[in-house]
């Protein structure tokens, strides 16, 4: 569970270089000593005449001009009414716009550790490289093993190490997009950190999340981790070559996934043996064509 992963801040690395992805404590905030008449604020009933600043808080002096008068508390309500992840969603929107303008079809691959994301990518790249330029963003807590596996195929790969962080976020992807000079009408794969929990909540700006479940994980994962299967637009059931050796019930796994996400399409594949791969490839090609077509119709408005 992510609640025990103890994710850290400021440990993110892209291709081994430390990056400053978040605002750090210590960045001063400035409070303007002027009365804000913003529509979203409203004064609350005064609480107490003896309202005194609490020791240890920041910047007592910069109170709102005129409101230090006895009998008037400065306590007030400020409406926010925004999604907690609004910032991430803003970055995701920027990424989505960037990708759409260039006709780039981006997929965010999510799964628990070891279900075969990198193996699948290597195989997929082999089958698709002659049709589209491909690039990969790899997310792992540590090591650049996966990026190295991708680079061995000859395709550019950028490794993001999240340190203790257990998911990629849209800001990291934005930085990665600046470093990768992606070709127009290309294909971008993002391999998320192996984790069936957190990555579901973080939009990266991708066209689709693709969830990979391998048959060695048990049929009930979609019920145990419903958010991920709810957020995905396609499920790949991987390692189907192992089915003869297991008591995994394919029908049950699919039924559970579709209970959480009605109508979720499922493809049964083997990334190592190649079974089911042609259907997956067709699904990608259809997406690439759509992305390219949309960017073309959008062009005249841009220039």
């Amino acid at each position: 569970m992510c609640t025990t992963c103890g994710c850290g801040i400021g440990q993110t690395r892209i291709n081994g270089k430390t990056v400053q992805l978040r605002r750090h404590a210590g960045t001063a905030l400035r409070y303007r000593p002027t009365q804000s008449d913003h529509a979203h604020t409203h004064e609350q009933a005064p609480s107490s005449v003896t309202d005194l600043p609490v020791p240890g808080t920041i910047d007592f002096g910069a109170g709102i001009a005129g409101t230090h008068a006895p009998g008037m508390s400065q306590t007030r309500m400020v409406k926010i009414e925004r999604d907690i992840l609004a910032k991430n969603n803003q970055y995701a929107d920027e990424n989505r716009r960037y990708l759409a303008e260039r006709g780039i079809f981006a997929l965010n691959l999510v799964s628990s550790p070891g279900s075969g994301k990198t193996t699948l990518l290597v195989k997929t790249i082999d089958m698709l490289r002659d049709r589209f330029p491909v690039a990969v963003i790899e997310g792992d807590q540590q090591t650049d093993h996966d990026a190295a596996r991708i680079r061995a195929t000859g395709v550019p790969a950028l490794q993001i190490n999240t340190g203790k962080g257990c998911h990629l976020d849209a800001h990291m992807i934005g930085q990665a997009l600046q470093q990768l000079s992606l070709r127009n009408n290309s294909l971008l794969f993002i391999e998320n950190v192996g984790n069936l929990v957190c990555p579901s909540g973080f939009d990266l700006g991708e066209a689709h999340k693709v969830v990979i479940l391998s048959v060695t994980e048990g049929e009930d994962k979609p019920l145990k981790y419903p958010d991920m299967f709810h957020a995905a637009d396609l499920m790949l059931l991987n390692k189907c070559d192992l089915l003869p050796y297991l008591s995994f019930d394919v029908g049950q796994a699919i039924a559970y996934a579709q209970r959480v996400h009605p109508g979720l399409p499922v493809l049964q594949i083997s990334a190592t043996q190649g079974g089911g791969m042609p259907e997956w490839i067709d699904w990608i090609i259809a997406g690439c064509r759509r992305a390219a077509a949309i960017s073309q119709t959008a062009q005249p408005h841009d220039s």
């Binding site: 605002r23 409070y31 804000s36 979203h40 007030r76």
Partner: peptide, 17 residues
């Protein structure tokens, strides 16, 4: 993310606690 939004709001809405 919650803290970041609070600090963003503080920068425009003038409060210190």
């Amino acid at each position: 993310n919650i803290l970041q939004q609070i600090e963003d709001t503080a920068a425009t809405q003038t409060f210190h606690r």
